[in-house]
Amino acid sequence: MCQQQLGQLQAELDRFDDVDVDLFAISPDSPEAHKELKEALGITYSFLSDPALDVLEHTNMVDNNQPKRGVSVLDENGSVIMNYEDDMFGMHMDETESNIIEALEEIE
């Protein structure tokens, strides 16, 4: 996982305070590696370990058996509402926030 993007997301997390959304970072890394990274970066949102890439494949965020960096929005039933690849999603927070909110509005 890209530490810079995860850290930027943490720094901008308050953008989602008034939005009914659960944010996760997903990667094939182990829970232990996630715990170490969260502690090192001061991350407060959840990480999901997906070693078999099942969730990432479901969200179409895998290419040649490698996870893509980007954003996905799923509804409460796990249906994919929106996804897109963006290696710099944390640096593009205006766009990231806008895309997430727009996708959530489709669910309502």
Rank of each mutant, 00 (worst) to 15 (best):
G90N: 02
V62D: 02
D87Q: 14
D50P: 03
L48I: 07
V71G: 00
V62P: 01
I81S: 01
F89Y: 15
D87S: 14
S79Q: 08
L56F: 08
V71P: 00
T59C: 13
E57I: 05
L48F: 09
Q66P: 02
D75Y: 09
D50M: 02
G78W: 13
E76P: 05
P51T: 03
P67C: 12
D87Y: 13
T59R: 04
V62G: 01
P67R: 03
D86I: 12
E76Q: 12
D50Q: 07
Y84S: 13
H58A: 10
S49P: 05
N77S: 10
Q66V: 07
F89M: 14
V73D: 09
E76T: 09
L48S: 04
G90K: 01
D54Q: 10
T59M: 14
G70C: 11
M61F: 03
D50G: 03
R69N: 00
M91R: 15
P51F: 07
L53V: 05
G90E: 00
F89E: 00
D63Q: 12
H58D: 09
N60Q: 14
F89A: 02
D63P: 02
M88P: 01
M61N: 02
N77R: 11
K68F: 01
D87C: 09
M82R: 10
I81L: 08
N60K: 14
S72K: 06
E76V: 07
G90L: 03
S46P: 03
P67E: 10
N60P: 08
V55K: 05
L74P: 00
Y84C: 11
V62K: 01
D54R: 10
M91L: 15
M82Q: 10
N64I: 06
M82G: 06
D75I: 03
M91I: 13
M88A: 02
